[in-house]
Amino acid sequence: MVRVNLVKDGHLSSGGPELLAQYDASAGHRVWVDICGNLIPDNICTQFDLHDLSLSDAQRKRHPPKVERFENYIYLLQRGIKVFDADLTFEHVQISFFIGQQFVITFHHTDSLSVNAWWKNSQTQDYLSRAPILLVSRILNTMASRYLEVMLEFENTLSEIEDDLQAALSDEVLMELTSYRTRLRRLKRIFSYHEKSSMALGDIYKELNSDNEISYHLHDVLDKNERLSSLSQMYYELTGDLLDSMLSMASHKLNGTMRVLTVITAVFVPLSFIVGLYGMNFEYIPELKFKYGYFMVVGFMLTLSVSLISLFRFKKWL
Rank of each mutant, 00 (worst) to 15 (best):
D220R: 09
M175N: 12
S192G: 08
L174R: 09
M199D: 14
T157V: 14
Q166F: 07
L174D: 03
L158P: 01
Q123F: 01
D203F: 08
L231G: 03
H194R: 09
Q166H: 14
D171E: 10
F191K: 10
S137H: 03
E195F: 14
T178D: 10
E149M: 08
Y127C: 03
N141I: 05
D163Q: 12
G202N: 13
Q233M: 13
Y193G: 04
D163R: 09
P132V: 01
E149T: 13
T178S: 15
S122V: 00
R189D: 05
H219T: 13
E162G: 06
I133M: 01
L158Y: 04
R130W: 06
S129I: 07
L231P: 00
F154W: 00
L231V: 04
T124V: 00
L140F: 00
K196E: 15
E207F: 05
D211R: 05
L222G: 02
Y235D: 00
I161F: 03
N121Q: 03
A144K: 05
R146I: 09
Q125W: 03
R227Q: 13
Q166R: 07
M151Y: 07
S197D: 08
E237L: 10
A144H: 02
L228C: 04
S159F: 15
E162W: 03
R227G: 01
L169V: 07
A131G: 05
K196N: 15
A200E: 05
Y193S: 08
I214N: 06
L152V: 12
N141T: 07
V173H: 06
N209A: 14
R181F: 01
I133P: 07
Q123R: 03
L201D: 01
N212D: 15
V221E: 00
Y236W: 11
V173P: 09
N156S: 10
K206Q: 11
Q125I: 04
S129P: 02
K120R: 15
E237P: 02
S137G: 05
L148N: 11
M234I: 12
H217S: 06
K196G: 12
S170Y: 01
R227H: 13
Q233N: 15
D171R: 10
I133N: 02
Y205V: 00
K224N: 11
G202S: 15
D211F: 00
D163I: 08
L152I: 12
E213L: 14
S159E: 13
R181S: 05
L128G: 02
